[in-house]
Design a protein around this nucleic acid. Sequence first.
DNA 1: AGCATTGTTTGACAAAAGTCAAAAAAGAAA
DNA 2: TTTCTTTTTTGACTTTTGTCAAACAATGCT
Lengths: 187, 187
Amino acid sequence: MDFRNRLTEHYGFTEKDWNETVRRFVPEILPARTLFLEKGQVSTRLAYLRSGLMRSFIYDDNASDITTQFFKEGSVVISMKSFNDQVPSWEYIITMEDCEVDVITYERMNELMEVVPAWQQIAKDVDEFKYNALMNRTIQLQTLTASERYQLFMKKQPDILQRVALKHIASYLGIDIATLSRIRKSI
Amino acid sequence: MDFRNRLTEHYGFTEKDWNETVRRFVPEILPARTLFLEKGQVSTRLAYLRSGLMRSFIYDDNASDITTQFFKEGSVVISMKSFNDQVPSWEYIITMEDCEVDVITYERMNELMEVVPAWQQIAKDVDEFKYNALMNRTIQLQTLTASERYQLFMKKQPDILQRVALKHIASYLGIDIATLSRIRKSI
DNA sequence: AGCATTGTTTGACAAAAGTCAAAAAAGAAA
DNA sequence: TTTCTTTTTTGACTTTTGTCAAACAATGCT
């Protein structure tokens, strides 16, 4: 099911709602390895990822290039804290493949929530969805061994596994790349 | 600064706002080791913790009694997914000390958000605060060693460290209790 | 195609963390 | 206080994971 049908079905979108929505999202093509958000900058845009793959990561003295999230087609690409509170981002977001996105700015999103109140609910639902995903991830890091975490990832996100460098999977799972290599051999 | 002042200062509460709020929160005393929320039940209430200490934990075939959060005085005690979406909880919440709480039900909270619109913002802020806390925790689990996690906990939450059994700290940090004991000795 | 760069695997080893069981310590209850 | 229960520590050991460096493989670029 495509985006429009989802909105109609879940949120009772009318023709007008859809039009108001569409006019505020700007389609863009982002080549692979384009930064969508930089650390330190206030996130001004949110994207719906039509096709392609992106990831968020942190990079500082303590932690060099640690992937914190993967975004695949159909996902909402957002750095929640920075976008919602309009504060500087502590993470980067970058494309890993050429991406087709529909982008909306913070201002336009606020307009949209006024014009189409259903968007308030959608925003809330997106935030909740992200919260739940993060909670699952946290519990996995808290309770599973490196090998178990990898096997679960393999099972739940086989598609991403095919598409990204292993070093990113490793950092996402909190495993050393050499260890991950050995885990893979042993399965 | 107490609760009332915080609301007045941050959200411009009027006398009336405060009265509408107060009448919907019910003060309660919960003895130590009282379940505030059980797994499988839909969370109907949220508490403001005036004094005492609580924790949330999961308990199932895979994971027996894994602490997922500590709540201390001044915190909002809530199982976000269950309360916000009114779905069965996947976690328990239990008091660890005698607790003084102000409790509000889901229905009353919705009323309150209508009568005092500032509460919509407060609810949003609480959710965001919890999300950020969870994000920090996740990154710690992802990037720090057991020893580093413990030392950080010691530094950031020395009060909780004094008040709860080490086995709960251990499970919260994803460390075996015997290992934690050795880490403590070595510092 | 050829070279440079980046990513992955491997070996040899070290360090970190877990397991199991028993002893010691601390707390709760009669 | 004494007993019972729970929690914490410890020892002996195993397993898991990380580190460093080199070799190997894959990929991108000119």
